[in-house]
Design a protein around this nucleic acid. Structure first.
Lengths: 208, 208, 208, 208
DNA sequence: AATGAATGAGGATTCATTCAT
DNA sequence: TATGAATGAATCCTCATTCAT
């Protein structure tokens, strides 16, 4: 994309490479990700890519890392702002929907390619990833502790229904098999989870 | 795995190849699936694989097809047997859990590699797949029509929460990030969906 | 083509194989000639082909041999029947045109694949081939000896202009680049060769 | 052949590859042409060949193209220089003889493999090829228009006798079945065509 | 006599990675 | 710092040929 051709400071070049790599990963997925294409998009040689990243894998990991950090930096502050279990839940679900929807391949890469890696737990992505999916878990956990949600279904299962549901929706959308409204998906998932787990079913919520 | 070394009848050899291919696909996934490895596991040459399947893709498709048919043959009859929305839902969810849990990579292959293929809708897997995911949708749809479930959340989203949730659970399990009890997963998902969508919240169900 | 399925006497089976092989060779050419396809056309197994012919090459050689013999058996008697150099020439040219036109690939195979073979001169095709192209040479040689044609151009060159010209015409025809009239080609070549070599130019011939 | 071992500039490497490929094509023909052998002859890896040419076919086409261009650049200017039908004819025939004689396999490749290709007419070789064979046709056509040659035999047939005759002569020569003197072949063909087609047979030419 | 099963030896093409300049 | 050239190790697929039954 960015066609520089000129010499860049190492941090600029790195940023450019990561940016192009993120786009590419989002477009073609992990297996079809070619370092050569990243180089091409930056207007540099393949060797330059390897100057900044020792392996293809390292570049991919860096992409995930940076991407996650951006997401979390934007997400984190907002959580506390919302009052009430349902509103907090809706907020994080909406955020997850927006993220996954915007970059389903990237999400998939992190969730499915990076996490299974034996060395994953040693990576700093591990921590970031935990922050990302964990933030949903935390909202749920807090709600349970507060007595707003029941505890008869595991938090991890609820979290998986949220992320799995979003992911499947996104893929169906990309395949052209259905619409993908952020609102509709957010409200639907929030509603099901909240109504399904609410400790006090007397005040059912209404999806928009 | 199976080391025959002997000559087999075509149907036997085919069965052996499909079986080994299914295992391999389950282990390494679509992209890392090598016909040569299938051959090795069957104790035959690579050329033998190509004697029975014209292309790598054809073998993979056959694996998916046969596997699906086995699943569906076992699943179908049972649905009608169960009375009540929640029980029917629990039954199909349990089945899906067992299937996805047993072969998560295979599931991913069908969901992510086969479905996006432009020619997918012309395949017989398409029909099988529709039968598979459709059976969940149908149970939900029937329940809505019967007035047992509300209609304020789309069927497709519910279905995605079911399959997405199961898939994520299975992956986390395989990654050693958590337990995976068929009962717990089945009950959890069924409960969330049912309680979250039930038209008459007066009689909440209890997960085991 | 012939679908027997039954057991044949060796000579019958051989004949059937050679016949199918000839057709195939004519259709696809030497390099794309697959023994498996010959077997398929005869309704027998590949192994049966190898029962009768030790190698692919042997089968191909046999095809050429038999084909040549048939041609020569039909051609030979007719030569003497014609009176006059030009008529004899026209006769053999017409025959060559018909042969090449009908089976250009086969001709090509013999002319270009078989002849270069180091062992070619030891083959019986060598003799047959010499009879085939030699018959044209002989007609020319006789005419020179009789004083009807000059001797200032080598017989082999004339023969090559005849066969090369026919072959190129046939290929252009097959490519759809032009018509191919047996009469027109025969008369054209005969005329050029005869008029160009005639010792007594006072009676120029007229092509039809 | 050329064993460099060193790093070459792209144009040098390309030239070396094309050169080696031309030689190889001339030796073994289209079907037996292996990119791996080209690599071996240049002392580089097979991958290097594919760095410069996306496919085997592309390399072959490039060989043909470049080769043709060299030929035509040398041939073209000379035609106009010669006076008289017979001299012009002799000149282009001589040129064709030299070309075909030097590289009969290459000629065959262009004539038989490239020309039949459906996309051939879109290639730049198409234009080059037309220039090549067309130059003979043009000389003949001009002579007919001028009244020097009769019009009772089609130009295309005459052209085919020229090229076909040359090709067969070259092959026989390569096979060791006869001598191949450029002069003798040129004069022979020119003589036959000219004497056979001359409108005024009173001044027959004398082959050397 | 016939064959069905099986394969060894290719053979075109891809791509992450290295290294001399 | 940057790179252009180069490649080793795959990877899918083909086909003439063998051999136990």
């Amino acid at each position: 994309m960015t066609r520089t051709g000129t010499r860049l400071r190492p941090d600029e070049r790195t940023a450019e490479l990561v940016s192009a790599a993120r786009e590419l990963l989002g477009e073609v997925g992990y297996e079809r990700f070619l370092p050569a294409e990243v180089a091409r998009r930056c207007g540099v040689s393949e060797a330059t890519v390897y100057r900044y990243f020792p392996t293809r894998h390292a570049l991919l990991v860096r992409v995930a890392q940076q991407w996650f950090d951006e997401i979390l930096d934007a997400l984190d502050p907002g959580v506390v702002v919302h009052d009430g279990t349902e509103e907090q839940l809706r907020y994080v679900v909406r955020y997850a929907v927006e993220v996954v929807r915007r970059e389903p391949t990237l999400t998939r890469y992190i969730l499915n390619e990076l996490r299974p890696d034996p060395e994953f737990r040693a990576t700093s992505i591990f921590r970031s990833n935990r922050r990302f999916t964990g933030i949903v878990s935390q909202v749920l956990r807090d709600a349970v502790a507060r007595g707003d949600l029941r505890d008869d279904v595991g938090i991890d299962l609820l979290r998986d229904m949220v992320f799995g549901g979003i992911e499947h929706q996104a893929w169906a959308y990309l395949r052209g098999e259905g619409e993908f409204s952020t609102d509709r998906t957010t409200d639907g998932i929030t509603t099901v989870i909240y109504r399904g787990m609410a400790a006090h079913p007397s005040h059912p919520s209404h999806p928009s």
